[in-house]
Structure formats: structure tokens, C-alpha cells
């Protein structure tokens, strides 16, 4: 028969078993600590994107253009945003500013909000309602665009807001559902190129012929893809109109 100490939960624990269980308890606690350490210190760097509340509220005037995502060509800047710059916009949360921007297409508008910044990329999260975007008076030049031909790029399709700093990390597959939700809410999508394209790493990405990001592209958000499309320079911003038929994963 088995003469080993026999454990009965509601009776005192036999001596030799007590020692064994004490050792197991210490090992378990230490193991939990070690696992927490390994999982904690091996987290990847989430990138440099951030809300720049430290810059304070930015208010500039510029011309609204729909590509079809609304962008602003700065006419009257401030000490951080130069005239001639072109930037994208978002509303609070996972929403774009399309409804507010559409009536102002091709017109001068005052834009006010907080900057989201990641390296060379920045966009502005507008204040609510007309405080964020309203028609302005004054003379302004018509925005110019310059077609730069057809390209094949490798990189990742992201939602512009999380990428620019609303979330850290704001790209990649673990973040894909959130990115899709942002894009469904009309946040402008951005293509992150593996290497700079005519000097830019980040391009606003659209469907062909100034349409929204096609549904097929949503399946590729967060993955590494190769895709062909037309690049056009709008002010200081490159717009990449991808051809969804050419989307493929990189090897």
C-alpha cells in the first residue's frame, strides 16, 4: 500500500508534505514574478507619436481641399505651422471631419485644435463644431496639385490618427480592429512606406480617382503589403491613390 503522507484538505497538512508545498508556493510566486518581468521588459518600443498638448491649441487659416479626405493648405500659419504646409484633420475619438469640411471645400477656413505628431507626420484633432473648423474671410491662392506618376510601394496601411500618436503603439496587427474602426469612422488612412518616397515616409492613401479607401484594402490594414498606385503632390502632402487589384502581401 501507499504509505506516503495523505492530504485531506480540511485536516492539518502532514509534515513532509508541508515542506514540499512550501517550496512549490515559493517557486510559484517567483515564477509569476519572473514571467511578469520577462513579459514586461520585452515590450517593443511603441514609437514616438503623441498628442502635443504641450504645444497648446493651434489656430491657423487655410484652404480646404477634399482628396476625398479633407486636407488643409495653410495660408496664414503660426510659430509652429508654416504657410504652405498641408495637413490632415480628425475629430475627437474615431471620427473624421468630413461632414464639417465638405461645405467648405475650396474655401478659406479657420482651423483650430491639438497637434498629433510623429516625426515628420502631423495632423490636427479639431475642436468641436465651428470652433474647430469655420469659414474665414480673405484672399487665398487655389491649391495646386502635381501628378508624380505610377509607383509600386511596400509598407503598411494604417489609420492616420492612431499612427500619429493617439495610441502607442498605433499600428500593426494587434491594433488592426481599432484601425479599421477609425477608418470606418472616416479618419484619414496613411501608408507607411518602407523607405522614403520623394522624401516622405508617410503618404495619405486613397482609392483610385479620389475615392475613399476601398473595402478590399481593409483586409490588408496592419499587414505588410506591396501595392501600385498614382502619387500626386497636394501642397506639401503626398497622396497615394492605390490600385486595390494590385494589393499583395510582401514575402
Amino acid at each position: 500500500m501507499n504509505d506516503r503522507p495523505f492530504f485531506v484538505g480540511y485536516l492539518p497538512i502532514p509534515g513532509p508534505l508541508r515542506l514540499f508545498l512550501g517550496a512549490i508556493a515559493i517557486l510559484l510566486i517567483a515564477g509569476f514574478g519572473a514571467a511578469g518581468y520577462v513579459a514586461g521588459v520585452t515590450q517593443d518600443d511603441p514609437g514616438s507619436g503623441a498628442f502635443r498638448f504641450d504645444y497648446g491649441r493651434q489656430t491657423v487659416t487655410g484652404v480646404v481641399e477634399l482628396v476625398p479626405y479633407p486636407i488643409v493648405h495653410v495660408v496664414e500659419g503660426n510659430d509652429r505651422i508654416d504657410p504652405g504646409d498641408t495637413f490632415m484633420m480628425t475629430a475627437g475619438g474615431k471620427s473624421g471631419v468630413d461632414i464639417r469640411a465638405e461645405p467648405l471645400s475650396g474655401q478659406l477656413a479657420q482651423v483650430s485644435g491639438i497637434v498629433l505628431e510623429r516625426g515628420d507626420l502631423y495632423m490636427i484633432q479639431l475642436r468641436g463644431g465651428t470652433n474647430g473648423l469655420q469659414a474665414a474671410d480673405g484672399a487665398f491662392p487655389q491649391p495646386e496639385s502635381e501628378p508624380l506618376g505610377r509607383w509600386r510601394l511596400a509598407g503598411e496601411i494604417c489609420d492616420g490618427k492612431c499612427l500619429a500618436g493617439a495610441m502607442r503603439p498605433g499600428r500593426g496587427l494587434a491594433h488592426k480592429a481599432c484601425a479599421n474602426l477609425c477608418l470606418l469612422g472616416d479618419v484619414p488612412p496613411i501608408f507607411v512606406s518602407t523607405q522614403p518616397v520623394i522624401g516622405d515616409e508617410f503618404l495619405l492613401v486613397t482609392g483610385p480617382d479620389a475615392t475613399r479607401l476601398p473595402k478590399r484594402a481593409y483586409d490588408f490594414v496592419g499587414q505588410y503589403v506591396q501595392v501600385e498606385g498614382e502619387i500626386t503632390r497636394h501642397g506639401s502632402l503626398l497622396v497615394f491613390a492605390l490600385d486595390p487589384e494590385t494589393l499583395e502581401l510582401t514575402p
Partner: peptide, 13 residues
């Protein structure tokens, strides 16, 4: 997948 940092942008036309 791994970030394909070696694939360069190519101008097709």
C-alpha cells in the same frame, strides 16, 4: 511577417 525594409519604392511610369 517581417517589416520589408529592403523593398524600395519603384516608379513605374
Amino acid at each position: 511577417q517581417y517589416w520589408p525594409k529592403d523593398i524600395v519604392p519603384v516608379q513605374l511610369s
